[in-house]
Design a protein around this nucleic acid. Sequence first.
DNA 1: GCAATACTGTATGGCACCGTACAGTATGTG
DNA 2: CACATACTGTACGGTGCCATACAGTATTGC
Lengths: 165, 165
Amino acid sequence: MSNLTTHELDSPPWLRVESTLMATARLVRSAFDVRLTPLGLNLTQASLIGYVAEFGATTQSELADHLGIGRAQIGSVIDRLQTRGLVERRPRPDDRRVWLVAITDDGRELAGRIAEVDAVLRAELRRGIGREERQALAWVMTRLQQNLATAIATTPPCPPTPPER
Amino acid sequence: MSNLTTHELDSPPWLRVESTLMATARLVRSAFDVRLTPLGLNLTQASLIGYVAEFGATTQSELADHLGIGRAQIGSVIDRLQTRGLVERRPRPDDRRVWLVAITDDGRELAGRIAEVDAVLRAELRRGIGREERQALAWVMTRLQQNLATAIATTPPCPPTPPER
DNA sequence: GCAATACTGTATGGCACCGTACAGTATGTG
DNA sequence: CACATACTGTACGGTGCCATACAGTATTGC
């Protein structure tokens, strides 16, 4: 397989950088989720609370963009947090379409504990990885994101219905 | 419009390397999925076909481990591929518990096209990223995986039921 | 003013995956 | 041999996310 440029150094043929990346991402989510369960939260919820606690009242669409999930999903996430009294929805006088999602007192208190968990876990994850290595990692991934975005945007031929059934 | 979460201003305690990593992983999956839809496959299915085509008949548990998903899920994936005649299940005489999942002729042909798509996309993703940068990326992520594994394994306090409800 | 367009949040159905529990089979131990 | 234990694959319910379609509201053009 791969008659072209078989780097024998470059890891096993199958699971390569992209797969490693996806596996690592799954582990990141698992690790944060595990550490956040004592607070009754998952990573998405914690990120939302942290964001609102730091940047103030935000519309749902903005939150969806910042957290990287869809507008539909963000609604149910907020629903649950609102039921638990951690955030609240406030109308905005000048635009009656939107809700402003704001932190409550309970939410602010929880945000402190979230930040604590976050700091502890991050410190553990940094073991044996230098600062410039982390920055290089971030740089390469940003570059990768650009390439991925253009690759996804380049979907030329037959998106609608695959030749199945 | 670039919801990339990586301005150094935008990186306060919250969305940092870990978030970038997860967002990148999502994009990787999306990119492969988009390129594979013309073949009527998603990334998981394509990986399974590629693995079986290269390494021969394999039990479901081994496949689940190699693809990084659960034993339950791998069954339904194989079901669909089998229905389409891309793989087949063969019994193993010396162990009647297991199925050996093997590639069919149709599957082998499709595997060739999968490898093609894979090579093309990988080439696009490598743009502007040097070889040693990729290797450094892989190294850091491997190290990160180790730290993540130990972090997950270190879940001492209250896993069973969160203090809710 | 008034229609056309764009945007926000919601409802719905679907997908991929997980965790648990279970039946069938192999393997070890008395 | 009988029994307990370990392993394989499957069934089931639950979760997080997406894509689409929709109603309500703002904004733009005339």
